[in-house]
Structures are given as C-alpha cells and as structure tokens.
C-alpha cells in the first residue's frame, strides 16, 4: 500500500501530497476549515479556506485580520495535483465536508454533520469515497432524534404554556447554529422573540446569507418596564443563572441539546426543560451516512469513537480511532458550548 492520503500530525489532519491541513489545532500555513465552531476553526493559521456560505460567520469568529478564502460547494481546486472540494455537511450554516482526491484515491473528512435537512443551511450530501473520516459525537444507539418538527412543536407549546403562567421563556442553546435553528422553528405569532447579544450578530449573518428567519428584537430594544412574560429569549447556555437574566423576572428555562435525550443529563442541568435537538447525526444516521459513502476504511473522531469503531469492525469495515483535539467527548457544559 502506498502513502496515506491523510495522516494526523500534532498540528491536525494533514494531506502531505497537497500540503494542507483540515481543521488544524496548531498554527499551520494552509488550513481548510469545515465550519466556524471554535474547536474546528482556530486562530493563528496563515491562510484559511472555507465554503462561501461559511464566510460571514467565519469572519466574525476569526476577525478582520485573518486571511480567508472561500469557494462555492462543489467547486474543485487543484493544489499540487490534489483535487480539493467542499460539500455541504448540514451541521450549521456553511459547514462542509472536505473531499480530497489524489491518484484515484478519494478521502472525505466530514467535520461535524447532520443528515436531517433544515432550513438554516444547505442539506448534507453523501459523497462516495475510499476513506471516510467521521465524527461520532452521538455515536451510541441510545441517541435517536425525533423529527425536528416535533421538537419545534414542543418548544412552541412550552412557550405558550409559560405565557399562560405569566413567565418569560429563556431558551438556551449554542450561539452559532443551534440558536438559529431553534429560531427557524419558533412560531412568531405566539409572541415577541428576543436575542442575547452573543446570538444577535450571528443571526444577522444568517439572514445576510439568505436564511429566512422569524423577526427578532435585541434585548436593548425593550423599553423601561417591559413585560417579558410573553417573550421568548434565545441565549447561550453560559447566560443562565447570571445577573443578565434577572431583568426577565419570573421565567422558565429550557436547554436545547442532543445530550438532553438522557434523563440524568436533563436533571443535572439547572433548567426547567430539556429539548432534544442536535446538529449532529444520531446513531441510525451515522451508520447510514457511513454506508452511503461506500468507504472501505473509516476513521472515527470525536465522540464515542472507540465504540463506533468496534461496532464497524464487527460489521466488517476497516475502521480505526483517529485521535484528534476536537472537543466532542465530555457530556457537560463545556462540550455543549464547544461542540454543538
């Protein structure tokens, strides 16, 4: 067997033939970045490449100084004879799988992905390859998502019930991706929707990118003694329990996350409700996504990688764990902040 198309170095996933890294975690010259979450898009790279759809949020995350190039999904670049293209991953706005082809060998790095289509980003596309590098954040058979419409209906019902009790609704979710997806499922006829500052700018980026979202207000627009009891407020998890939430008076809190599938995780969180909504694949979709690539070899990164690898091996696949520094493993606040 010849040289591997991809290897893992101390700086990240590396393509030697093309001399570039994918989602590197230490400074490198050339980085292809799958999406703008902070464990994938890190500071300090000489040059970045991302999808067109990702550019605005990437810019917001990395600052004006960063040198960022972008390409449309599907456009093929050739670097040192290596063909590189980005394909929708359905995780958040602009998230991409990276397809790398050299000497007839095709490798695909999934980044984070989700196969259920939603209105806030271009839907996931399966790509055939020889080597598939997959995430496995929710790689256990206990994780099986309900259709998102059901979750949205539950969230809207919770909002209405809070209103009936005279309580504001504080919906906590990761500021990039989760909040906008939650917003897309809210029914603006129920009441006014407000955004935390950390969510506001990113949401504007989504709109600028053509994503249709219900109208929202920023907290500061509420004047004087505003009656928050009818309002829905979207905020990052870190806002919970801080003095910032006091202004809302009596309120109910909910957390949106795939981790909320488990009762213990729901109870550990100091929130009133847990809604199971994830931007990652669940167990059945993970298996079907891997199958659809027709890959002979699968490398599994952050999440339940050892478990998924053992299972795939038993199914006759050539699978191995890829040690990376993507932060997908802890089932706690940190991972909810970073990985979702």
């Amino acid at each position: 067997m010849g040289k591997e198309l991809l290897t893992v170095t101390e700086r990240g996933i590396y393509c030697e033939a093309g001399d570039f890294f994918i989602d590197p975690w230490r400074p490198v010259d050339r980085a292809i970045v799958t999406h703008a979450h902070s464990d994938h898009a890190r500071w300090g790279m000489e040059r970045y490449l991302c999808s067109d759809e990702s550019l605005l949020v990437m810019r917001r995350r990395l600052g004006d100084e960063a040198k960022i190039d972008s390409v449309p999904y599907g456009e093929v670049l050739t670097w040192n004879g290596v063909k590189v293209s980005l394909h929708p991953a359905g995780h958040i706005l602009g998230s991409a799988q990276v397809r790398v082809e050299h000497n007839g060998q095709v490798a695909v790095v999934s980044g984070d992905y989700k196969t259920e289509a939603d209105t806030t980003c271009t839907p996931f596309e399966p790509i055939k390859c020889h080597l598939f590098v997959s995430e496995s954040t929710f790689g256990l058979p206990i994780y099986r998502w309900s259709p998102q419409e059901e979750v949205y209906a539950d969230v809207n019902a919770w909002w209405r019930s809070n209103q009936a009790q005279g309580k504001a609704s504080l919906l906590l979710g990761y500021a990039l991706g989760k909040s906008q997806r939650a917003l897309s499922g809210l029914n603006p006829e129920i009441g006014p929707i407000f955004l935390h500052g950390a969510v506001q700018g990113l949401t504007e980026d989504y709109r600028a990118q053509g994503v249709q979202l219900p109208p929202t207000k920023v907290i500061g627009e509420a004047e004087g003694k505003f009656d928050w009891s009818q309002a829905m407020i979207l905020a990052p998890p870190s806002a919970n329990g801080t003095p910032w939430v006091r202004r809302f008076g009596d309120h109910s809190t909910a957390f949106l996350s795939g981790w909320m599938a488990i009762r213990g995780a729901r109870r550990r969180r100091a929130v009133d409700r847990g809604f199971v909504l994830s931007d990652h694949v669940d167990w059945p979709s993970l298996l079907s996504a891997i199958k659809a690539t027709e890959a002979e070899r699968v490398w599994v990164t952050h999440g339940y990688s050892a478990t998924v690898v053992r299972y795939l091996q038993e199914q006759g696949l050539d699978a191995k764990v890829l040690e990376t520094e993507f932060e997908g493993e802890q089932d706690d606040a940190a991972v909810e902040e970073v990985s979702e």
Binding site: L140, P141, I142, Y143, R144, A261, I262, R263, G264, Y304, T307, R310, Y311, E314, D331
Partner: peptide, 24 residues
Amino acid sequence: GIPNWLFGECYDAVGDLGETISLV
C-alpha cells in the same frame, strides 16, 4: 439489533436499565 457489549456501553452512559431499553 445491537450486540450485548454495545448495549452495555449504552447502559453505562445512561445509568438506568429501563431508560436504556426505551432509548435503544
């Protein structure tokens, strides 16, 4: 349709048999 060892991993993650079964 999952092997016993994998059910065991699930049980470890959930910590409750009745709940694990309902989830898998």
